[in-house]
Design a binder for these strands. Sequence first.
DNA 1: TCGTTACCATACGCATGAGTATGGATTGCG
DNA 2: CGCAATCCATACTCATGCGTATGGTAACGA
Lengths: 192, 192
Amino acid sequence: MNASAKPERTRLSAEDWEDAALRLIADQGVGALAVEALARQLGVTKGSFYWHFRTREALLQAALERWEQYGEKEIITQIESMPDPLARLPELFRRVAHELAPHRVYAALLKALDHPQVVPVMARVSQRRLEFLTSIYREAGLVPEEALNRARLTYAAYVGFLQLNFTLGLPRISHEEFDAYVEHMIRTLTPG
Amino acid sequence: MNASAKPERTRLSAEDWEDAALRLIADQGVGALAVEALARQLGVTKGSFYWHFRTREALLQAALERWEQYGEKEIITQIESMPDPLARLPELFRRVAHELAPHRVYAALLKALDHPQVVPVMARVSQRRLEFLTSIYREAGLVPEEALNRARLTYAAYVGFLQLNFTLGLPRISHEEFDAYVEHMIRTLTPG
DNA sequence: TCGTTACCATACGCATGAGTATGGATTGCG
DNA sequence: CGCAATCCATACTCATGCGTATGGTAACGA
């Protein structure tokens, strides 16, 4: 009958706080990142927090860097290892379309682009993904300029979809309808 | 040598406050909407504000509704009056691409989708625009389902572009590069 | 076992920002 | 002119949330 329903750890580490911060950011936004709220959620008080971190700002910074590390290395290497360049884009689209969870933090950070601390992180992550997309389009046969613009278009569509259907709840698209949308997107944005 | 560089009005109306609120939202986000800050900017104090509005929430609500009214009627009627259905989409894309100012409030509200008051407004506006886009695609020859999905894709690309290049400052695209991107987008997303 | 280090609770101070109370100034109108 | 209604200033209260000070308890090595 404790205040928190969490696994009742006895002692906490800095990483525990960072993970909790990322969870909170994922479903309430960075604006909701308050130390006393986090402490309650972890079943401790502020006294604990200020032992691990000098300030709230420091926690946010650490959490963001931790998130940036986890990255998207696996999916990038897996896609790049595919022999047929033309098959990479459809596979990539279907993959990212069907794992919604990892995008929740990204969607939350998208809404915090006024915050000075998240801007550089998002800039780096988005830039890396954009370059990856561009290279895939090049390998699929587009000339450099076309590849870059198509990558911009594709990534913008991804980001916009997150905002419109994830955060905002437009008419709540169904599962089959979503699959049809993804296939339409593949036909429209993929060369060949 | 007054605190505010504004036109020095002697008396204010509720509409003045709503306009000021929208300006502030446009370049600092809804989170920065504070009554004392607004009052300073208008050269008055809170005493004035609480005569016109019952609460901060009421101001935000009024400002949002005001913004929703201004709407996009002109551009919609202008596009719909074009005789050639196939020419409408390129024209629409070029038009919205070259007037950046009106999108600033929309971009700011996009980042405030955690806020209960902005969600319904954004849902209505986005839904209307999406239906308009869908009808244009239908008139351009796409079958209903294709038209809807293409409209979703196009609008998502629009929203994502706002986030990536407006709010976030990815490598700061140049003017010529932007025009090339728009033309690429027209070629890719437009039938015919 | 004893002390040192790591971890946490309690109780503060302090700044910010919303909302209230009340009185003063200005405008329109009879 | 003079009185109401309109508009605004000043001076509060109150809640929230960051950060600090300080003392307490659990873990671990010598």
